[in-house]
Design a protein around this nucleic acid. Structure first.
Lengths: 339, 339
DNA sequence: CTGTTAGCGCATTCAT
DNA sequence: ATGAATGCGCTAACAG
């Protein structure tokens, strides 16, 4: 079934009684080919519907013009947006995008990386699974000179190329906003402790409070596994405090929405009895009657674009010395939904 | 930079003083290789960190174990869900997924198809751009024996393989539901007229009304381009009717939400002055205070899975006679949000 | 059980 | 300006 044979340069060469190398050159507009020959070749090629066999070219050139993108869940708006940015940038340079979803499973993440390496993608863009701690499967790629750029969920070490949301900046905005609104007991719902962002958020939180000379109460910092149940547990803990928070900063809009539902089940009205600020600024927020009071736009598309640009520059970069690892922070923007 | 050379079977053969074919066989657990040789080869392979070069294999085998997926927008939950289903199914058979977003642009769609064909993907899964009328760029693929399966936004002709939502069934449910609620003037907001689903929805609508012996008023059927502005225009038309509809069936939840916002701007309260039923059942619906009264779940993941299964069966199928074109309908389910 | 050989389609180096 | 020859890494037909 897959055996119908397509025209090759060899076929064209035969029909024109010239050599394959001439055909190859003619097809590439090589300067040293006679105008006459060139046009004969190109005409016949068109007539036969010749299309170069990319698999042969990939094999020969040792490049596939394909980049791999590994991320937890395509269904999350953030990641879908990031992919769009990536696709746009790499398509402009004739690269294609191979995707793999880790489903937040470390083993799957490893398997995807291996498959992509064997398939000789020219580079990989990764957003880590929420439980990835060990990065061996990425450091192993150095051996193959396979460039990797992380985005959003990035490793802590600065030896890697990475593009991420500027957590200190965004968190600072969020907390300042809440404090201006008069809140003094601000709770936090982080993701899992393994996630770099959890620590960053907490650190910034403490810094801001410190600067305002407020005392820090770490019982206001909760963690969750990003599921609805996990969020409920975190909320339960926070609300059970002797002095529960009057406002909560949640790792993302999904968690905030689950938290809002939980609060509601405890008869706490959102934006009245309790207030939320979260990260992501989901497009659907504008349809919600009762959204988080504010959300920090993280510009997923921009993150994807930037990661893709860095990756392409690494792929293109020829030279003995590797480029310095890049560490790009994308500043967010606080979008206020409820004034 | 991309020149560090990796171990090949040739390298292994040399070190072991045996032939490459023996190595190749040993690596594949070929039965006719001596146990001793086999283990020597496999050990050295592991020691050298040998990994087969897939690009060479693709080239030689004339298969890439890659399938292309072309769809309008990854950012729409429906399509992201479908991809997840596709990925899951094809990964189980060691296939990878190459994606391309058409952005609902026909030219982009064509370009993506061409690129995928040249890259020798083993098959393609497509959801058409909303304006694709001419299918030449798909029929051209027959020449290459490249299997194609359409899903969701499928062509009308039955000569193609396709998996789609069962529009008559779903629409019937929706309209019956609205009629049980007492509605007699039911409006429709379709997508563009080019979309097959627009005609199907309208047809079913007319059939149901006919069966109930209600008179049909085609001014209740509006079309939109799926943008917020287009939706507003459609709403404007419907609400300007001498007898405006009391309920509206909208092509999808996004359009319904925009329509609800428009209605609100005209002081019509959703689920009180006017009612909506739509298609998709977005996961975020459950967070909405004031969602469409009901929405028809279209099981995107299931559609993706089914499309992938069909494609894989076509790829695997060896034989002179091609398989019959499949035409699968996935029944939806009416999910009632407001009782 | 193992080796030899050919060839997939193309770009490229070296001749002429 | 063109051709001949080579090889990328691997599989498989054929030959022992």
């Amino acid at each position: 079934m897959k055996n119908k044979k397509l025209p090759t340069i060899k076929e064209i060469a035969k029909q024109l009684n010239i050599s394959v190398s001439t055909v190859s050159r003619a097809l590439h507009d090589h300067p040293s080919i006679g105008l006459r020959t060139k046009s004969r070749v190109q005409e016949l090629a068109k007539e036969l519907g010749y299309e170069p066999n990319q698999t042969a070219i990939f094999f020969k050139q040792r490049r596939t013009f394909t980049i791999g993108v590994v991320l937890p869940y395509l269904i999350e708006d953030f990641f879908a947006g990031a992919i769009s940015g990536i696709e746009e940038v790499v398509n402009a340079s004739k690269y294609n995008v191979l995707i793999g979803q880790s489903n937040d499973d470390v083993e799957r993440e490893k398997a995807i990386i291996t498959a992509m390496k064997n398939q000789r993608v020219d580079g990989i863009i990764v957003s880590l699974s929420k439980h990835t701690k060990n990065l061996d499967h990425f450091t192993a790629l150095e051996r193959y000179d396979l460039p990797v750029v992380f985005f959003d969920r990035v490793p802590a070490s600065n030896t890697y190329n990475k593009v991420a949301f500027d957590m200190p900046h965004g968190t600072h905005q969020a907390i300042s906003f809440l404090m201006e609104k008069g809140h003094r007991r601000i709770g936090i719902i982080n993701g899992p402790k393994e996630m770099k962002s959890s620590k960053e958020r907490t650190d910034t939180y403490m810094q801001v409070l410190q600067k305002k000379r407020l005392k820090i109460d770490l019982s206001l910092v909760a963690y969750c596994d990003l599921t609805k149940e996990g969020t409920s547990l975190a909320m339960e803990t926070l609300l059970a405090l002797k002095h529960p928070p009057t406002a909560i900063l949640a790792i993302n809009d999904y968690v905030a929405l689950d938290a809002i539902q939980y609060a509601k089940s405890k008869n706490l009205i959102n934006n009245k009895d309790i207030f939320f600020v979260s990260y992501a600024n989901l497009p659907i927020s504008k349809y919600l009657e009762n959204p988080p009071m504010a959300s920090i736009e993280q510009y997923p598309k921009k993150q994807g674009e930037k990661a893709a640009e860095i990756l392409l520059s690494m792929i293109t970069h020829e030279g003995p010395d590797p480029l310095e690892p890049q560490n790009i922070l994308i500043p967010g923007e606080l979008v206020v939904h409820i004034r």
